[in-house]
Each structure stands twice: as C-alpha cells, then as structure tokens.
Design a protein around this nucleic acid. Sequence first.
DNA 1: TTGTATGCGTTATCAA
DNA 2: TTGATAACGCATACAA
Lengths: 328, 328
Amino acid sequence: MDKVPTIKDVADRAGVHAATASRALNTATRGMVNTRTVTRVLEAAKALGYAPNSAARSLRTRTSSVAGVIIPDLRNPVFPPIVRGIEDGLREAGYMALLGNTDGDIDRERELFDAMRGRQTDGFILATSRRDDELPATVPTVLVNRRTDTGAVPSVTADNDAGVRMVVRSLVELGHSRIGHVAGPRHLSTGWERYRAFVDATGAESVTFAAAFTEEAGFEATLRLLDAYEGLTAIVAGNDLIALGCYAALASRGLSVPEDVSVTGFNDIPFADRQRPGLTTIRIPHYDIGLESARLLLARIANPAAPAKRIVLPVELITRGSTASPKP
Amino acid sequence: MDKVPTIKDVADRAGVHAATASRALNTATRGMVNTRTVTRVLEAAKALGYAPNSAARSLRTRTSSVAGVIIPDLRNPVFPPIVRGIEDGLREAGYMALLGNTDGDIDRERELFDAMRGRQTDGFILATSRRDDELPATVPTVLVNRRTDTGAVPSVTADNDAGVRMVVRSLVELGHSRIGHVAGPRHLSTGWERYRAFVDATGAESVTFAAAFTEEAGFEATLRLLDAYEGLTAIVAGNDLIALGCYAALASRGLSVPEDVSVTGFNDIPFADRQRPGLTTIRIPHYDIGLESARLLLARIANPAAPAKRIVLPVELITRGSTASPKP
DNA sequence: TTGTATGCGTTATCAA
DNA sequence: TTGATAACGCATACAA
C-alpha cells in the first residue's frame, strides 16, 4: 500500500466510520466524540502518517489556509524581512503564503490577484496598492506598508509622519535651514505621506519627486533638485535607496556628504550602516510590520465584518555619519 | 446571482453538457470538441467571468500547479534574487510558489515539507538540504544552490570549484603565499565544495569552519584562524557574509584590509560593492540559478523518470578593494 | 456519541 | 463529437 492514506483508511484502522474520524481529527468538532474514540483515531492517523487532503477539504469548506502575498519586487531590500514576518505570522495559524511579484505593473498585479483567487486563497496581503486603488471587497485583504486614501482597507504601516518629523527636527537642531526633499512617487502612500509630512514640518517648497523608490530614480531626482534649488545644505530622501541615489548625484557634482550636504533616508534597510558614510535614517520595524499584517489578515478572515483597523507602528531615528552641522 | 460561476453554469449558457464544457475549456482536450462548440463555450465562460475551482480540479487530477519553495531564511541576501528567479520561472508554466523558511532547523523543514505536501504541492525546490539528506523519491524535487553527496537529486548550483580557484589564483598572482580559509559549514554542499576546492588549489591546511554562513559565525571563525595560523596575508571566506565577519575580526585585532590582510568573499550579494573596502568576490548568477531550478522542476514534473540533471552555472571574479599585494 | 447520506466542482471513463 | 455517470476526499445535516 504505497498510496497516500485517506480519512477512510484511518477510520477503518480505528474501527469507526469516516465521519467519526473526521470529527475526531478536527479540533473544532472533537468535543462531540468519545475521548477513547478520539485517542484511537489519533493513533491510527499517526500510525498511517495521515495528512488530510487539502484539495478535498477546500472543496468542501471553501477555505484553503493559504494567503496570497503580492509585492512589487522581492529584491527591494525592504521586503524580505516583511515577508519573513508575514510568513511567521501566518504560520501561527497554520496558514501558508503564496508569493507573487508585480514589478509595480498594475496589470500583472491584477493577473496575480485573479490567479491566486482561483487557487482558493483565503485572503490577501498586498504591498503594491496605489493610493487610489479600488480593491474588491469580496475577499479579506490587508495592505502592508501602504494605504489607500479612503482608509477603507485595513493596513499596517510605519509611522511615516513621525519619522519625517524626527528627521527634520534633527537636521534643524544641527543648524540646517535650507532643506530639500527627494520624495518617492506621489501615487504610493509612502511617498505621499512622507512628502506631506516634510512640507508640514518645514514649510519648504524645495521638493522633487523620484519616479520610483530606486537608487536610479533617486539619482535623477536629486540632480533636478540641485538644479532647481541652490544652496541646500541637507536632503531628506523618500527612502534609503533614494538616499543612495542622492549620494551618487552629490558625488557627481563634486559635493561630499555630510561636509557639503547632509542626507537622510527612510527604512534602515540592511547594510544602511555599511554605506559610506553610514546613512542617518528612520528605522521601521520591518519584521513586525509583516507579522502584524498577517495577524490582522487572520483576524479579518475570522471575522470579515470587523472594522478595518489601521495599525501604525512606531519608528526610530538612527543617526549615522551622513548628517552633520552645515558649514558656517 | 452573486455566487461564483461553475462549469455547470458555463455549460448551461452554452447549451452543452458540463463534460463538454470541461473538454472545451481545457486546451489538452479541446481537440475532441467541435470547433463551433468550443467558441460557444469560451464565450459563455468569458461572459460569466468563469474561473475554474482549483480545489475541485486538484482533487480530481491530483495536481495543483503549485510548487513548494523552502529556504533557510529570506533575510539572507542571497535568497531574494534566487526566489525571484524561481517565481518567474514557475510563472512561465502557470505555476505559483508556496514559500517557507526553516532557519536551518531540520525539524521545521520536515514540518513544512509535509504541510506543503498536504496542500497538493506538485513539487519542491529546496535550498536547505544537507549533504547527507535523504529526500523522499515520491515527489519531484530540485535542489537550488545545494547538492547532496550522491547526486541523485537534480540540482542547480553555481560553479563553486571554479570560483574558489579563480579567487585563489588571483591572490597568488598578487603575490600571496600564506592564504587561510574561513569555510562555511561542512554539512552544506556549498561550504564543503568550496573547502575542497580551496584545499585542492592551495594545498594549505590553514582552515577553520564557521558554524553558519553568517557574519557572526565568520567573525568567530576568523579569530580562531588568526590564533591558529600566524602570518596569513590573505583570507578566502566561504561567502560574503563570512567575509564581513572577517572584516570585523581583523579590525578587532588592529589589522586593516587589504593593507595587512586581503579578504575575498563568495556570492557577490547586493551591497558587496558598498562595503568598506569593497569586497572582492565571486559573482554567482542568483536570478538565473532560481530561474533554471524552476525550469528543471517543471521538466521533472512533466517527466519524473527523466535523469537527475545537475546544472552548474558559471561564475565570475569581481575584483574590488579588499584584495591587494601583501606588504613586502 | 456515532453512523448514513449527500454534495462541494471538476474531469475521466464509458456509452451513445 | 457529445452526454451520462462516477469518483476524487472530506465535512456536515440529519437520523439513529
């Protein structure tokens, strides 16, 4: 008998009917089965190495214990720790993650979403939504590190507003008064919220928008910023990768960090401390963001009618060598 | 009618039997259906927004178009690009990836493996196997960046042997003759193969083994190496993270890189170029390793009897500031 | 507390 | 070329 054992095999071995075995195996219904019967069934299951066929179970219960996780690109260093947190959070409830990358392509996101839905995914964790996204209300969904403007979808994010204010305050305390901002894309909540916070905190207009949260886009946007606003002594970058683009752009203009211009990032990605100079940035709790988003999703799956929580996790200023007082 | 349409709904709308609709919808069986019937069915499916219920299909066909991907820890920077390549490779065939992390824990690996199997996974891509692992022959499996000693399991790896030889040759050409090796764990094929290649290439005995492929383990093993073998002018590290541990250990002894000791890594992880000094290392084609492993798995799923290919991808020496000629 | 019967949606087999 | 029917493995409403 090489074939995979079914619940029928377990039932036969335990001398009960398949229905009883099913009840004994399932913790929720175990209560309605005689204790001795339960042990017999459990022993039989163990002896046979029984594992329930999830396809059959899904077909019957319309749940799969699988969540879809859709992100732009795993190679962006913010995502690995977040995804890791998600996976650990899902595992607490016996869930697993189906992973997909979109490269920011909205059609691909749609495709992936549909394909995962076809695979009976119980819910979604999305790191890809634009601020104006309309998400189908039919399936439990949580946004991670992103929000929609309406706030109708539950989300887990870092405190972008507080982070930017911390960074700006530290620059002001160092004596900077001409501060620029290389913002992330407007259509992403992270880019937008940090931009709003920067304008609120500084009242400054010296802002350019990078086309993406990448080093290349940061490089390009920094050059535009330098051309448009003279005499800046500090640049607040929309995230760490953009900040690295700032480094390169400043170097290309013969400016050094932090002697000529201070630079700050956002996220504290791995290796931010190894840059030259080390990057002053805002540390967000990557792993916990993932973990909380998984838990939030599980809660939504358990009770889809629950209000759409928006969890905002605290951030921390990490001061390194990329910021200093401006030259007199 | 808000409910999800089934094949029965499609069949009714097209005026055919469900079995016929199934044949028309499935490309493999489409040939046995009248062309006009096919178009009618396809139109009906489109009109209803029909998507097959994969649980029902899996139950019937015993396939799922899902592959399990099990790695030690996504936060290790080698894995994101590999996983990304895997995902893209799987997608070419309409497959998706179920992702799991083990933290190197063999029990957890077993658990994940079983849990994924229970979810009707069609095959596995494992980055976790030890050299002596016995893998169940019952389900198609491919190893990525790892091999077992017997070679009975198909695998996709970088050319560890050639990489180490390139590194050693370049050090020798720089004039080094007292070269040490901080190897990765013996029980992993990457650690073992690079160690063997080092010994073959140098004939040297100056080796210590790190407990893991991490910076901390590299730090600790480097201190042991320095204590055991005096006068080393170069250290070949088992991978980049270990090399960063070397940097730290050398610094703690007041030695500078590359003036006192040259250091090399392996993998060329993102940001290896940003270290201080930039790390001379072997670049492995992370993404392609993932891509090829996905394709290999798909081939094995299509034909499980096919011979167990072992694909070895070429590597490249990347010279940066961490290597130089020894002091006279 | 346990057994019986049924159906989830799909596809494979068999017959027409 | 199509239709009828059964079966994949499980969980539940109902009966005992």
